[in-house]
Structures are given as C-alpha cells and as structure tokens.
Amino acid sequence: MKITGKHTINAPRDQVWGRLIDPDSIAACLPGVETLDKVGDDEYSMAMNIGIGMVKGTYTGKVRLSNMNEPTDYQMYVEGSGRPGFIKGTGTVRLADGENSTTDIEYNGDVEVGGPVGAVAQRMLGGVANRMVGQFFGCVESKITGE
C-alpha cells in the first residue's frame, strides 16, 4: 500500500526538522503511542494503540530513522505487530522551505499490512494511513506553534 502526500507546517524548516526527529515529539504526536523507548542510535521500541472505530489494537515494534540529511530529508522505518495483524513500512520525508517561513513536507512511503486486519480492512487502510500521517504532522505543528 502506497502512502503519499503533502503537508504544510506553519513554522520554519529547522524547527520542524528538530521536532520530526525528536523522540519525545514523535511519542507525543504519533497517534496512539503508548510507549517509546530509545534502544539504539535513532532506533526506538514502541507500543501503539491504533485503529478506527471499534477496530483497534495494540501493536508493539520499533521505529528507526536513517539516512538523515539535515534539514532536508530522512527515512523512517516502522514495524509493529499485534493481534489484529502487523504493519511494516518505510518512507521518505522531504522538507523544503515554503512561503512566509512555512515548511512544505512531502512524504512517500510503502506500507505492508498483514494478518486479519489486512485481509478484511483493505478498502479502509489507505484512508486510515493517510489520516494518521495527517494527524501526526498536524500535531507537530500545534506543538511548535503552541509554544
């Protein structure tokens, strides 16, 4: 399943970059994150409770950031498994200066979903994934602008 999209954050690029790669910020903004612990350089183990409506589940797994090209782009790898199934995805996040000190973010990723949730929820997965990404960036923005 491909996830692509754009998002504009009302904050300058270096601030946005700082937030995107900061574990506390990720933990606060990635929807449903219950725990996020550093286990290595730019690698974190995590537990997330995510879903839509009543189809919810806890996934445990890890997040890894790599190929960091501050402050332009980086790659993120996420894997998690739980009772509803498992997810595994890599994506590239690119930042560019927008107008009026904003940041234009472009993301491009590939997510594999398996297990019961994959078998049943095909039509919703793309929508859910994009929604979660949107929520993440929206939260990052509010954390910056809220200060």
Binding site: M1, P116, G118, A119, V120, Q122
Partner: peptide, 14 residues
C-alpha cells in the same frame, strides 16, 4: 495477493 504475499481477498468481504 499483494507483492508482499498478503492475501488481500482474505474473506468473503472481498
């Protein structure tokens, strides 16, 4: 099947 070998048509819903 998708490229990861997941059976997308995994129930009678699909």
């Amino acid at each position: 099947y998708d490229d990861n070998g997941q059976l997308l048509s995994g129930t009678m819903m699909d």
